[in-house]
């Protein structure tokens, strides 16, 4: 029997080995390498300077640069607002459609489409909708007499970030709806019946039945959406390129690394971003108790 157990474990290790190898080579090694590179001055275009060890200089440069703090703030702002909107809208719509009606299949298929198409493609769609001259948004608002002249949606600090949020909400709210809908369907009607008997108002039913039972799903959904939103790159890259106070950490990191060829500082930024993600995950998993493993 012992031999059997050894054999079983041996097979198991062999079977998980490929996963561990790819993860090790493609995910863990690069992160460790970033950590290592972040202590050196590495500039591809200045090979004559060598690659001297600079200690914490890269980090010091980041933390004293207002551009970094602005990017951190922009990223946080974007993450909080869009994830909140997605959750509220997603929950409202999920509760609304959580009933049998004709055309549910159609609804499900249509909400999947925004999720399924490449973000860059939907970003281009939105960029065209927001165009200052021939954009349909401005034109419709002028038709309804809400605007008197075209508005530069993507060229003003007030609206550029809202445009990015709108495009993100459009793409991911449907996903939220599906997730929450699946959760709602696991709630047994008995809970509601019991609450009705107690004379609970719809609002109280929502507060005391729906929300607590949905909490685990909401937390998981929030965690993944938050991490996703925190990494946002495509939308900003296409819609504003980071101008108008929309530069996020991902865009900044890519700029420093690839446009300025400053791999040392780019790596330091990557490490900082990685730490932010760790903190977010920690808060969700340990403090709020999101259960991400069975």
């Amino acid at each position: 029997m012992d031999k059997e157990a050894t054999r079983e474990a041996k097979t198991a290790y062999l079977l998980v080995a490929p996963s561990l190898i790819v993860i090790g080579v493609i995910a863990l090694f690069p992160i460790l390498r970033s950590l290592w590179m972040s202590f050196y001055a590495i500039d591809l275009t200045l090979p004559q300077l060598g690659r001297p060890f600079v200690g914490l200089a890269n980090y010091l440069e980041i933390f004293t640069d207002s551009r970094f703090w602005a990017a951190l703030w922009n990223t946080t702002y974007f993450t909080v607002i869009s994830v909140t909107l997605e959750l509220v809208l997603g929950l409202a719509i999920a509760m609304l459609v959580n009933r049998p009606f004709a055309g549910r299949g159609l609804l499900r298929a249509s909400v999947l489409i925004p999720w399924a198409i490449p973000t860059v493609v939907s970003a281009q769609m939105w960029r065209w909708i927001f165009n200052d001259k021939a954009g349909i948004l401005g034109s419709l608002l002028q038709n309804f007499k809400i605007l008197s002249e075209p508005y530069p949606w993507l060229a003003s600090v007030e609206t550029a970030r809202l445009c990015i949020i709108a495009a993100d909400v459009w793409k991911t709210t449907p996903f939220m709806v599906l997730l929450l809908l699946a959760g709602l369907q696991t709630i047994s009607p008995e809970y509601y019946e019991a609450a009705m008997v107690d004379g609970a108002t719809p609002f109280r039913r929502f507060l005391h039945v729906t929300l607590p039972l949905l909490k685990p799903i909401i937390l998981v959904a929030l965690l993944f959406r938050t991490l996703d939103a925190f990494r946002i790159f495509d939308l900003v890259y296409v819609l504003t390129g980071g101008a108008f106070k929309t530069e996020t950490l991902s865009v900044l990191t890519s700029d420093v690394t690839f446009k300025c060829s400053d791999y040392g500082q780019g790596s330091a930024l990557a490490v900082v971003m990685f730490c932010c993600i760790m903190v977010i995950s920690f808060i969700f998993i340990k403090v709020l108790g999101a259960k991400v493993e069975e």
Binding site: I26, P30, S34, F224, T253, F258, E293
Partner: peptide, 28 residues
């Protein structure tokens, strides 16, 4: 299958889904 380290592997795999791609892109 029964083997040791399951939990560790699961958390490792899960942590990959949290990696910001841009943090890996330069060194990858």
């Amino acid at each position: 299958l029964k083997f040791r380290g399951k939990h560790l592997i699961l958390s490792l795999v899960l942590s990959v889904s949290m990696f910001p791609p841009i943090a890996i892109a330069p060194s990858l």
